[in-house]
Computed example of a mutant assay.
Amino acid sequence: MNVAQRVAIVTGGGAGIGSALVARLAREGARVVVADLDAEAARAVSERVNADHPGSTISAGGDVSETAQIQDLIALAESTFGPVDLYFANAGIAGAPRLDASEQEWDLSIDVNLRAHIRAARLLVPRWLGREEGYFVSTASAAGLLTQIGSATYAVTKHAAVAFAEWLSVTYGDRGVRVSCLCPMGVNTRMLTAGEDSGDALGRAATRAVTSAGDVLEPADVADSVLAAIEDERFLILPHEDVLEMYRQKGSDYDRWLRGMRRYQSSLLEQP
């Protein structure tokens, strides 16, 4: 899909990968609703991008895991720019380390990292089927393919996000609905350092697992990978190419891979 003159919604657009996606989309001629729980951050991104590309974005604050908020975003996009062509389900949270994450922490991770995608798709896919065109971009993680040392809530919900994106593509891919799933490793965002700052040994191991496994990319580099995948209408977006080989190794010998992950975790926990 060529994004020029298309209408997009980007959740988690106030920082990190989301803000980079907004800037890249606007540069390519798209019109974008910048959505974020932090309304001021969303407004700042919108104003910065509009300074270079006047009238290309509008911002909105709100919890994009709630159906009513997603409905409001769609209505804002339609009244400002026109029917929504692309939805970037990009908002996400790192989640709590260890198995003793509370029920509330599990619910929050499931709502933000998974149900937000499901709720958006339930609203948009019927519209796209009527037009025989639409694009859903899910931000998951390499943790959705390879799991995550440290955070069960993150690993589980990111696996589920990948599975939901796959299901969307299988079910609707021949009816005009395109789907891509972004699975990066380390990206230079606040989420990257969340584990290091958690005060928990397993949380610190989670951050170190990502930063020691490959290069830490800038959000703009990831946005470039996403736009290239959309142009090619390619499902799996891997800004870190090594993830594909890791995924193949996992699938070829699961038990060996699990033993290796346990050794890797132990080595990270031994670090001061």
Results as ranks from 00 to 15, higher is better:
residue 185 M to N: 14
residue 243 V to R: 04
residue 250 K to A: 04
residue 192 L to M: 10
residue 207 T to M: 00
residue 130 G to T: 02
residue 241 E to A: 15
residue 194 A to L: 05
residue 42 A to E: 00
residue 36 D to W: 01
residue 115 R to W: 08
residue 264 Y to D: 12
residue 102 S to G: 13
residue 53 H to E: 06
residue 161 A to V: 07
residue 248 R to P: 00
residue 52 D to K: 09
residue 59 S to F: 10
residue 129 L to K: 03
residue 192 L to T: 11
residue 223 A to H: 05
residue 181 C to P: 13
residue 247 Y to V: 01
residue 104 Q to H: 06
residue 34 V to I: 09
residue 69 Q to M: 14
residue 118 I to C: 02
residue 181 C to Q: 11
residue 162 V to Y: 13
residue 217 L to G: 09
residue 59 S to H: 15
residue 201 A to Q: 13
residue 160 A to V: 07
residue 39 A to S: 11
residue 217 L to K: 15
residue 83 P to F: 07
residue 132 E to F: 09
residue 77 A to E: 12
residue 233 E to H: 02
residue 31 R to G: 06
residue 172 Y to I: 13
residue 170 V to D: 14
residue 48 R to P: 00
residue 198 S to I: 03
residue 164 F to N: 06
residue 117 H to P: 02
residue 68 A to Q: 14
residue 270 E to K: 13
residue 47 E to Q: 09
residue 71 Q to L: 11
residue 22 V to L: 08
residue 87 Y to R: 03
residue 256 R to G: 14
residue 115 R to E: 05
residue 59 S to P: 14
residue 80 T to G: 08
residue 65 S to H: 00
residue 206 A to D: 05
residue 150 G to V: 05
residue 166 E to G: 10
residue 193 T to M: 02
residue 91 A to N: 10
residue 165 A to S: 15
residue 263 R to Y: 03
residue 138 S to Y: 10
residue 66 E to R: 15
residue 130 G to H: 01
residue 189 T to V: 03
residue 75 A to H: 11
residue 230 I to Y: 08
residue 58 I to A: 13
residue 122 R to E: 14
residue 188 N to Y: 09
residue 38 D to T: 02
residue 108 L to M: 12
residue 232 D to I: 05
residue 78 E to M: 13
residue 17 I to Y: 04
residue 256 R to P: 08
residue 44 A to S: 13
residue 211 T to S: 08
residue 159 H to C: 02
residue 267 S to T: 07
residue 244 L to R: 15
residue 6 R to D: 04
residue 203 G to P: 04
residue 30 A to W: 04
residue 136 F to D: 05
residue 73 L to S: 13
residue 195 G to Y: 06
residue 60 A to R: 14
residue 91 A to C: 11
residue 125 V to I: 14
residue 90 N to T: 04
residue 7 V to N: 06
residue 265 Q to D: 00
residue 121 A to E: 12
residue 6 R to W: 04
residue 216 V to I: 15
residue 53 H to V: 06
residue 204 R to V: 13
residue 145 L to F: 08
residue 67 T to F: 01
residue 173 G to H: 06
residue 198 S to G: 08
residue 262 R to G: 02
residue 104 Q to L: 10
residue 132 E to G: 06
residue 164 F to R: 11
residue 117 H to T: 13
residue 145 L to D: 12
residue 72 D to F: 00
residue 10 V to T: 02
residue 51 A to S: 11
residue 32 V to Y: 07
residue 59 S to I: 01
residue 210 V to G: 04
residue 20 A to R: 07
residue 247 Y to F: 14
residue 258 L to I: 15
residue 224 D to K: 08
residue 199 G to N: 07
residue 120 A to D: 03
residue 192 L to R: 09
residue 138 S to D: 01
residue 1 M to H: 12
residue 37 L to I: 03
residue 103 E to I: 03
residue 3 V to C: 05
residue 156 V to C: 04
residue 14 G to K: 01
residue 261 M to S: 02
residue 1 M to L: 10
residue 184 P to C: 11
residue 238 L to D: 12
residue 122 R to P: 03
residue 151 S to K: 00
residue 268 L to P: 02
